[in-house]
Structures are given as C-alpha cells and as structure tokens.
C-alpha cells in the first residue's frame, strides 16, 4: 500500500511531463490545422479513409516546409538512403559518436572545473585574478572559439572533446566554488579542534558538503557538453557526428524538411538523456542525505 503510494508519487512528474508533451504536439497540429498547408491524408489510421482539409488561414511559419506534420517527422526516421541505412540508425550512430566526445569533454571539463575551484578557494588572491578571465571566456561565442581549438589541435575527435570541455568547465567551476564554501561554519571549528590539515578539511568536509552544489553544476554542464561536441564537429568537417547530419538537413531543407527536424529530435533527446543520467547519479549518490534546499533547484 505504502509502496504503491510512493511509486505513484515518483511517477507523478513523468505523468506531468507526458501531459505537457502531448499538449504541445496537439498545439503544433492545431496551428497547422488552422493556418498550415492543405491536409491530405490517405488511409487514416489504417481505416482506408481519406482526409482532406483546407485550413481557413495561411500562417507563413506553418507551411509543411517550415513546420512539417509530426507524423511526417516520425515517418522520416524510417526512410532508407541509397546504402540501405534508415534515418534512425544513421542518426543514432552519429549521436553515439557525438556522445562519446561529449562524455570525454564532460569528464575533462568537470575535472578542470573542480581543480580550478579547489585552487581558487584556497588561494584568495587568485580568485580575484582568475575568475574574471573564467567569466570572460564564456562571453566569447563558442562558434568563434571552436575553429581555433579544433584546427589548432588537428581536426580530430580530441579537438571536438576540447570544445566540449570549454563549455563544461565553467558551470562546474562556479558550482564548485560555491559548494566548497557551503559547509556549516561550526563544522570548520570542529575540524580545527581536531587540528585537521587543509587536505583533511577538503576531503572530509568541503568536498562532501559541496556535492549538492556540484551536481547542480553537472546538470547544467552535461547538456552543454553535447552542444559543445556538436559545435566542435562543425569546423572540423568530421563526418561521423550529429553536426554532419544537421548540415545535411540544412542543405536539403527545402526538399526534405523532415530530415532536419529528425536531427533536432535526436540532438535534444541526447541532451535530455545525459541530463537524466546526471540527475540519476545525483539521486543515488545523495540517497542518504536530506537534500538542502539549495540543491532542490
């Protein structure tokens, strides 16, 4: 009884999400119904009937090119190319390649971010000297930085991962900086009474106390790592990742708009996937602690 109640409570956000998602899909089609191109559907839901509809209005943004029908985008996933690959297998293969570089970038960026935060927390004057540079680094558009990094490092997967690192380290640095100072000041007194070294304070107080903050940083950093990976693939002309598929989608947009939409769907699913992965790890790591309010965000 209690168990099923708690299971229901855990399912509630999922139900909410699905509801919102379905509402968005309906709104999408409603716009097309009111102001899109002419509808012509043969064999509606396998009944053999034909459905024709001429929308009363014409919205410029709701044509079949700009806003394809949802079923057209879904159908695109099953289309085969000349080699016999379906769109879905091609996009998933590309997503996997992008994910690998994003994962390497995330790991590197998180490590750098944490080490930087640990350094800045202990050497106060460095914080004032370095932090503005760290912030400035994020104001340069990644589109401008990516070619410099990728070409500077030979245009291979490693350069791509570094672009991903560049986007990842910042949220982790900021979150870790705050987290490493988020301990209870009385706990610091306790550590002083134990004559604890700086390392012991770091390992036994600062780092464990920072975890809820760190995970907030990781949750922002993980999808950013995916974006960084895709942006990094653009100037490197790497053929294996999602960037190539997005460019293809752009080139053939006027002929096959659904393809670009399919790549958008896969890219965003990848971002959501890595976010959920981080959130899952967070729940597991912090399973014994009552979560501080700050981490609930």
């Amino acid at each position: 009884m209690g168990r099923s109640a708690s299971a229901r409570r855990r399912l509630r956000p999922l139900v909410g999400f699905l509801t919102v998602f379905v509402v968005l899909l309906i709104a999408w089609e409603a716009v097309k119904f009111i102001g899109g191109d002419t509808w012509h559907i043969e064999n509606v839901l396998g009944t053999g009937a034909t459905f024709d509809h001429d929308p009363p209005l014409k919205f410029a943004f709701a044509t079949d090119i700009k806003l394809p029908h949802i079923w057209a985008i879904a159908g695109e996933f099953g289309n085969q190319d000349a080699v016999g690959d379906t769109t879905v297998t091609r996009l998933l293969r590309a997503a996997l390649f992008t994910l690998r570089n994003a994962a390497i970038g995330f790991a590197l960026g998180s490590t750098i971010g944490m080490l930087l935060a640990i350094l800045l927390v202990h050497v106060r004057f460095l914080e004032r000297a370095i932090l503005p540079l760290v912030v400035a680094s994020q104001t340069i558009p990644i589109i401008a930085i990516a070619p410099l990094i990728v070409i500077g490092l030979k245009a291979d997967w490693f350069g791509v991962a570094i672009v991903s690192t560049y986007l990842t380290f910042f949220p982790v640095t900021i979150a870790a900086l705050r987290g490493l100072r988020a301990f209870d000041p009385r706990a610091m007194e306790l550590m002083r009474s134990y004559a604890a070294s700086k390392w012991a304070i770091l390992g036994k107080l600062r780092l464990p106390a920072s975890r809820p903050y760190l995970f907030t940083g990781f949750r922002i950093a993980a999808p950013a790592a995916v974006v960084g990976s895709i942006v990094g693939e653009l100037p490197s002309l790497i053929q294996d990742g999602l960037a190539r598929q997005i460019i293809t989608g752009m080139q053939y947009y006027s002929l096959n708009a659904e393809y670009l939409w399919a790549t958008i769907v896969v890219s965003s699913l990848l971002g959501i996937g890595v976010y959920l992965l981080v959130a899952g790890v967070e729940n597991w790591v912090l399973r014994h602690e009552r979560r501080p309010e700050a981490a609930a965000a």
Partner: peptide, 12 residues
C-alpha cells in the same frame, strides 16, 4: 575533545 551546543554531525 569538544562538544558544542549543536551536535554538528556530518549528514553524509
């Protein structure tokens, strides 16, 4: 050894 007014136990 020191005992404060609050227990100051580590949650983790």
């Amino acid at each position: 050894g020191m005992v404060f007014q609050a227990p100051i136990l580590f949650d983790w």
